[in-house]
Each structure stands twice: as C-alpha cells, then as structure tokens.
Amino acid sequence: MIARAVASDDTPTGSSPAALAFVDVYQAEAGFVWRAVRGLGVGQGAIDDVVQEVFVIAYRRLPEFEGRSSVRTWLSGILLNAVRHHRRSLLRKSPHETLREEPTDVDTLETRARGPHEEAVAREETRLLERVLGDLDEAKREILVLAELEEMSAPEIAEVLGLNLNTVYSRLRLARESFEKLAARYRAHERRRLG
C-alpha cells in the first residue's frame, strides 16, 4: 500500500495527493497527533496505543485520501474517532467506573529547557488544564483541543466535526464559557487550600 502511495511520484513532496507518502505524513503530523491525543485525556498507559491506531488507520486509508481537505483535518477525523473508540472500550471494560483515566504524571516527563521555577509553574498549569478538560463533556473537550491546543481555524473545525460554521462558533463559545467557569473554580479552590 505504501508502494502504491509512493510509486506514483518520485518526489514525496509532490503536489498531487496521490504522491503523499505515509512517512511524510507521519513525520509532519506525529507531534500534532500526540499532542491532541494527550489533550483529549487519553491516559499515560494508552497514549502509545492510540497514537499507533491513528497512524495504522491513516496508513490504510491514505490511498483514499483525496486531498479535498488538508492532511491535518483528515487526520483529525481519524484521531477523534480513535480516541472515542478508546474511551468506549474502557467503558465496556469497566462500565461502573468513571471514564477519568490516570492522568499523565507530568513529574515523570523529561525536564525541558526551562528553569526549575518555570518548570514547576508549567507543571501546575498542565495539571489544571488536564483537570478542567477532563471534567468537560466529550464534545466540548474535542472542540477546545482543536481550537485552543491545535489552533485550528473555525472552518477547519467545521470540516473535522462535520458541522456548519455557525454551529462551530456557538459550540466553541459555550465550551469556552464552561472552561472559564471550571478553571476559575479550581483556581479558587487551590488558593483556599494554600491559605
């Protein structure tokens, strides 16, 4: 299948969608997919699996990709489905548990090029973000991850979610309001706790 995708053109960056090579898609979008999967709340133990699923499906469907949308919007559709699928299978496994997964332990993540103070602040912020996103319903979480984390435009989001543009705007507004409310509540709670 990869042969089919590559063989049609010598230049992997060729403009024809048929020339898209899987490796190029992977290289360009691995970071995007990983970020979104984490933002959508997939637990640490399952990130590898879900990211892999996304690319296995992308690999199989690449020959059908017609270039009507950008690779990224196309991949986002696959990604959202893979994450929903993952959550449903968690639910099937333990129907009486809540869907909240073990959040990624940011302390174990490798330290990036930041000072210790910046590091601690960033860690706190990531934790808060994960909590708030985790408490939103799936639709709100999805639209916020696409808009705020991945910085996709409203028309792109409309395409990914199969919604019309006005619906995207109004859902985005509601999702942001919910996010602001929850974040404010957690921040207030945290301030009280710290006295």
């Binding site: 691995a30 970071g31 990983w34 970020r35 984490r38 933002g39 990211v51 940011v106 993540l109 490798e110 990036r112 602040v121 960033a122 860690r123 912020e125 990531t126 808060l128 973000l129 708030v132 705020e148 984390l149 409203a154 705007y169 985005l172 507004r173 942001r176 996010f179 602001e180 974040a183």
Partner: peptide, 22 residues
C-alpha cells in the same frame, strides 16, 4: 467568537510544549 481569558489561553500555550512527544 469570544476568546479565552489570557490566563486560560496561557494554559493551552504551556500544554502545547508539555504535550509534545519526547
């Protein structure tokens, strides 16, 4: 389209770096 408050936008900016795969 109303935007998030700056401190909440900052949460997403921080996560963009933190959520990158190592």
């Amino acid at each position: 389209m109303s935007a998030l408050r700056p401190e909440n936008r900052a949460l997403f900016r921080a996560a963009q770096a933190d959520f990158e795969p190592s």
